[in-house]
Simulated assay, not measured.
Amino acid sequence: MKTKDLTKMAICIALLSVSSYLSFPLPFTPTMVTAQTIMINVSSLLLTPQQVFITVMLYLLMGLLGFPVFAGGGSGLAYIVSPSGGFLLAFLIAAPVISLMRQKVAVNFKRYLQVTVFIGMPIIYFIGAVWMSVVTHMGLIATLNAAVLPFVIGDTLKCIIASTLALRLERLTSSTKWVTSYE
């Protein structure tokens, strides 16, 4: 990988870590509202499938090793096996799929939004809900009502934000010459 790619990946890890601090709990669900999905989508739209997989894997590894990078400053294995841990693990699958699907056509807002809303978020919701259902021993329908439905409108807005940011960053980086003297 080139220095430019590694730099983009490092910035995505840092922003993903910071975005987890932009969070607040809802009284009726163990899942917190965070800005993580914005950064997962931005990272997925800017990086290749391999790059975003490595980025999310390193982010999860940091959290597992005790760095406070999960929602609300959480970390450790206990956080991953918690009811909302499945949503974090879902990022590992959804992010490369979003990246792969967005690369199929030219860069545009409509495509970015479609891929994040109709492909990425359903993957995250499905894996996260199944995980939560197993961990909490709730039925899948009850889990969907508690951990997915309350978040759909907000996550759609986050996908709009992510698609807008990614498109602008994509245009900015494609028009800017990067210093490549070390490559």
Rank of each mutant, 00 (worst) to 15 (best):
P30L: 09
M32C: 00
T34Y: 01
T34R: 13
A35T: 06
I38W: 01
M39N: 08
S43F: 02
S44C: 09
L45Q: 09
L46P: 01
L46Y: 04
L46E: 10
T48H: 08
P49N: 13
F53A: 15
I54Y: 14
V56T: 13
L58T: 10
Y59A: 14
L60M: 06
L65C: 14
G66H: 11
G66E: 08
P68F: 05
P68Q: 06
V69A: 09
A71S: 15
G72S: 07
S75N: 00
S75F: 13
L77G: 00
L77V: 15
A78R: 07
Y79L: 08
I80E: 04
I80G: 04
V81H: 11
P83K: 06
G86T: 06
G86C: 09
L88A: 13
F91H: 07
A95Q: 09
A95F: 04
P96E: 06
P96M: 05
V97R: 03
I98G: 10
I98H: 05
S99A: 14
S99Y: 05
L100T: 11
M101K: 05
R102H: 07
K104Y: 05
A106F: 02
K110I: 14
R111I: 08
R111P: 00
Y112V: 00
L113A: 12
Q114G: 14
V117N: 10
V117Q: 07
F118N: 07
I119Q: 03
G120W: 07
M121I: 10
P122K: 08
I123G: 08
I124T: 12
Y125K: 07
F126T: 14
I127S: 01
A129T: 15
A129L: 12
V130G: 02
W131T: 07
M132I: 02
M132N: 11
T136Y: 02
H137T: 06
H137K: 14
L144F: 14
N145T: 11
N145I: 15
A146C: 10
A147M: 13
V148M: 00
V148W: 01
L149A: 09
L149D: 00
P150W: 10
P150D: 04
V152P: 10
V152N: 07
V152M: 15
I153N: 03
G154V: 03
G154Y: 00
